[in-house]
Design a protein around this nucleic acid. Structure first.
Lengths: 194, 194
DNA sequence: ACCTTTATTTACTCGTCGTTACATTACCCC
DNA sequence: GGGGTAATGTAACGACGAGTAAATAAAGGT
């Protein structure tokens, strides 16, 4: 037990891996990109994380825990309206952080991919579906609390809000500014169907 | 002049190239994928289209002329409201055609990419910006025709509608059905800000 | 001081990538 | 039925992809 100590911090490395996968996507990222940026050799990466797919999964977990934590925060808003607004504004902020890539890793990580990367495409597809399901859960709670009028379907509402969030991510990747995206988020929040 | 005749139809080939780029994205597609599907050899592809980037550009043109022609159609609607609704419903339909990949080639073709594919990323970014600008132009016309209340900004409206369209494309890539996406489009159309 | 353990380094495998040279084949024109 | 022309098929190019084998280096325990 306990041999030669690792010369790099594994969480720092993961943070940098997040940045690169976020910017270049799964297929657009080579292990050598990561190794170069981290200043370590490829075998050290393999020793620490397994393989490319395992590293991406860990990077996605870290991304979820940090960048998209605003989703859980938004759920604490007392009203469904407040939740929806904070979700969409949060998406605008998270996709236009300075010093970070524009857009959302969960969206642009592997929207389309070759057959060899299908597993990652599905991983991200599930990631997005899980987010939508979480949001739907929050709106179902709102309905049971009488916070949502009965004619508003929580599933429809969650679908709508996530659609706007994903659209914001795409526009961020197209170079839209934070101000522009926040305007869209506000407009969408003001014109909610109740 | 006029030597040996080409053994494949160049437009059919382009159609098939659209399908593959649409499904796998730019970086996820290898020239051998295309050659295999078209049943021709790689050098024939190069002779006919130049290189991978040129082929993608031509495929995108074809995609635009066919799959996204609903955008120009929607502009013919008499009211801004009708235009917006048809755009979003059209996006739902175009991203869930049967026999075609789920999603939008202009969105998932290269949202994130390696540095070597930056040119294609920008190409698609410009493609999306051009679409948004077109839509904004239509709403500006609507405003000058008195069809839009003065408090509604055509730029904001176009931004909002394209956001929903892109979000629909992402959800289609996540496996959402046509019916689900049309519900979202209808909901978004009903809750337009005027 | 030695042994075990684990990380690092260097060098390599093997497949695939985009792209191209070269020889061959099929058509039109005269 | 030869030339000219432009497509095809075969085979290769160099670069780079993910992943690994083997030797070396640095720590802890005894």
């Amino acid at each position: 037990m306990s041999g030669r100590p690792r010369e790099f911090d594994i969480d720092t490395a993961l943070d940098q891996a997040v940045q690169i996968f976020w910017r270049q996507g799964y297929e657009g990222t080579a292990i050598s990109d990561l190794a170069e940026t981290l200043g370590i050799n490829r075998p050290s990466l393999y020793a620490a994380f397994g393989n490319k797919e395992a590293l991406f999964r860990k990077a996605l977990d870290r991304y979820t825990a940090t960048v998209t934590s605003y989703v859980q925060e938004a759920f604490k808003e007392p009203t469904a309206r407040g939740v929806a607004e904070r979700l969409m504004l949060g998406a605008a902020d998270a996709t236009t952080r300075e010093g970070c890539p524009q857009g959302c890793m969960g969206v642009q990580g592997a929207l389309a991919a070759s057959v060899e990367s299908d597993r990652i495409r599905y991983l991200l597809s599930d990631w997005r579906s899980a987010a939508q399901a979480d949001i739907q859960g929050r709106f179902e709670r709102a309905r049971s609390e009488g916070d949502l009028p009965p004619e508003v379907d929580p599933a429809d509402l969650a679908a709508y809000v996530t659609t706007v969030m994903y659209g914001i991510a795409v526009r961020a990747a197209s170079g839209a500014t934070n101000a522009e995206l926040r305007r869209t988020a506000t407009l969408a929040a003001q014109s909610l169907p109740w």
